[in-house]
């Protein structure tokens, strides 16, 4: 987006000053700046990470969109590119990294794995979509999404940023955005917010087993 696009319609700018001056709203200029300097976090999880690297490499080169600086540190990144399969062993780290990112922050789920589990969803140690734990802004399905599909995902993200307003964005609200509690690795992955549910489930399971055992005993007795 050049300066011309920033200009609000309805204002005549003298032709001598075209390209140098734009009359616009604060929101627009704020979003315009952010839109064109989204720094992604260098964060590869699986196969999709390679398509992400390819998008950064010479042929697709996402630095054309002001994204060239892939930051290894979450503190300096605006965009978390979850590129690949999210496993139960990895999700605590992902949540921790997300918490460490400073606002404004965005999450792009790349690939069907990050979106909703992917081909390995049925497995026992795969999280069914990273949005089970952290909020996702843009989903790019595909296995793997080609670099151009990912670039399209960035375009979609930029559109989202474009439509935000300083008045409503969460990072300028009074109330603090709560941190996401980091999941714990127990016998299986445990979300600290759901302990009561898990306990109830396990208790019910135990009960069921007891009933079954009792039932089979009875049957045995009858026979």
């Amino acid at each position: 987006m050049g300066v011309e696009d920033l200009n609000l319609p309805g204002y005549e700018i003298p032709s001598a000053m075209k390209g140098n001056i734009a009359i616009t709203t604060l929101d627009r200029i704020y979003n315009w700046c952010r839109q064109n300097s989204v720094w992604p976090m260098m964060f590869g999880l699986a196969c999709c990470a390679f398509e992400m690297i390819c998008s950064a490499a010479s042929r697709f080169d996402f630095s054309r969109f002001g994204m060239e600086v892939m930051r290894p540190s979450p503190r300096q990144a605006d965009l978390m590119l979850v590129s690949g399969t999210v496993t139960k062993k990895m999700i605590p780290q992902i949540v921790r990294l997300y918490n460490q990112m400073s606002e404004p922050k965005y999450v792009l789920a790349m690939g069907s794995c990050a979106c909703g589990g992917g081909p390995f969803k049925e497995g026992y140690s795969v999280v069914s979509g990273v949005d089970k734990f952290i909020p996702v802004d843009v989903y790019v399905p595909g296995c793997p999404p080609t670099p151009q599909a990912l670039l399209h995902g960035f375009a979609v993200l930029r559109k989202k940023i474009e439509n935000e307003s300083i008045r409503t964005v969460r990072w300028y609200r009074k109330e603090a955005v709560p941190e996401i509690p980091i999941p714990v690795l127990g016998p299986d992955l445990m979300d600290p917010r759901r302990y009561a549910e898990i306990k109830a489930y396990a208790a019910e399971k135990a009960q069921q087993r007891e009933q079954e055992a009792a039932g089979s005993l009875n049957e045995g007795g009858q026979a």
Binding site: C115, G116, Y139, P141, G142, T146, A149, G153, V156, K160
Partner: peptide, 13 residues
Amino acid sequence: DYEIATYDRFAHH
């Protein structure tokens, strides 16, 4: 067609 990125997977995927 690879340009199918969305904001909401529950509605569209």
